Simulated scan of single mutants.
Amino acid sequence: MELRRRRGALVLGLVFFATGAFVLGCFEYLTVLGWIVGLLALLVGGGVVLAERRPFRFHIGPNGMVLRVASLNRAVPWTEVDAIVLDQQVPTIGEKQPISSSLLLVPPTNSFVEGPLDGRSPVDGRPALILLDLADVRQSVDEVAAALARFAGSRFTDVRHLRRARFDSPDFNIRPGGYEPAQVDDLIRQGRDGLLIDQLLPRWAAKATFERARAELPASELGYDRTEVDSLLDELSVLIARSPSRGTQAG
Rank of each mutant, 00 (worst) to 15 (best):
M1C: 09
L3D: 04
R4L: 07
R6C: 02
R7C: 01
V11A: 14
V11H: 07
A18M: 12
T19Q: 10
T19N: 13
T19G: 14
G20W: 05
A21S: 09
V23C: 01
V23P: 00
C26N: 15
V32N: 07
V32K: 07
L33R: 12
L33G: 12
G34E: 06
G34C: 10
W35K: 04
W35C: 08
I36C: 04
V37N: 01
L40M: 09
L42K: 06
L43D: 03
G45V: 06
G46K: 06
L50H: 10
E52K: 06
R54D: 07
R54F: 07
F58L: 06
S71V: 02
N73S: 15
A75V: 12
A75S: 12
V76P: 00
D82M: 11
V85H: 02
D87V: 00
D87S: 11
D87P: 00
D87T: 02
D87F: 01
Q88I: 00
Q89W: 05
T92V: 11
I93R: 14
G94E: 09
G94P: 08
E95V: 15
E95F: 13
K96F: 12
Q97R: 15
P98Y: 10
S101R: 09
L105H: 06
F112K: 11
F112S: 13
F112E: 12
E114I: 11
P116A: 14
L117C: 05
G119I: 05
P122G: 08
P122L: 08
G125A: 05
G125S: 05
A128Y: 03
A128V: 07
I130Q: 03
I130T: 04
L131D: 03
D133N: 15
L134N: 08
V137S: 06
V137N: 03
R138N: 06
R138Y: 05
Q139G: 09
L148K: 09
A149F: 04
F151N: 13
A152Q: 08
R155N: 02
H161Q: 15
H161D: 11
L162S: 01
R164D: 01
R164K: 08
R166A: 11
R166F: 01
S169G: 10
D171V: 10
F172A: 06
I174Y: 12
G178K: 08
G178M: 09
I188Y: 00
Q190G: 05
G191R: 02
D193G: 11
D198V: 12
P202W: 10
T209N: 13
T209H: 11
R212K: 14
R214H: 02
L217S: 00
L217H: 01
P218G: 08
P218E: 10
L222V: 12
E228M: 14
E228H: 04
D230M: 04
D230A: 09
S231Q: 10
L232C: 00
D234V: 01
V238N: 04
L239H: 02
L239M: 09
I240Q: 04
A241T: 00
S245V: 15
R246S: 15
R246E: 13
